[in-house]
């Protein structure tokens, strides 16, 4: 059991680290802004999810694959496919956001609260 837990951490570290490292190479080589990187990663995750590839990465990396934004795209697609299986084509429009609801809602709500409570500080 201990062995197993350690392996999940190792998998998360390596897979998550590699995904972020790819992002860094893209930033340094292509001068893509962070907004474009985020869009690229969420879309890539969705496509890899649709192809059934990301599922395998999640099995190895656990949170290392679900925490990066590619995992967000994967999650949207996974939810879509699940809903399509249950409700047909309508699922294409309900499944994605339903699966990502917690993340999106938390980001909006806590984000709003935080922006009310905190103020930006100048960098030095």
């Amino acid at each position: 059991m201990m062995q197993n837990t350690f392996m999940t951490y190792l998998g998360a570290f390596i897979v998550g680290g590699i995904i972020c490292a790819i992002g860094q190479i893209l930033i340094d080589k292509t001068k893509l802004t962070s907004a474009r990187i985020l869009v690229l990663f969420v879309t890539t995750g969705a496509v890899l999810g649709g192809l059934g590839i990301y599922e395998k990465i999640v099995q190895i990396g656990g949170a290392g694959a679900t925490v990066p934004l590619t995992g967000f795209g994967y999650n949207l697609v996974k939810g879509t496919m699940k809903e399509i299986n249950q409700h047909g084509l309508l699922g294409a429009f309900t499944g994605g956001v339903k699966a990502a609801a917690a993340g999106i809602t938390a980001a909006v709500f806590f984000g709003y609260l935080a922006s009310v409570a905190f103020t930006p500080k100048a960098k030095r």
Binding site: I27, K31, T33, S34, P120, K121, A122, K123
Partner: peptide, 20 residues
């Protein structure tokens, strides 16, 4: 002004980006 210029031309101050 560094902050007003960043806000207008680049990114919010608290956004975690690297400057080339």
């Amino acid at each position: 002004h560094f902050c007003s210029a960043e806000k207008q031309f680049r990114f919010p101050l608290e956004l975690g980006t690297q400057r080339p």
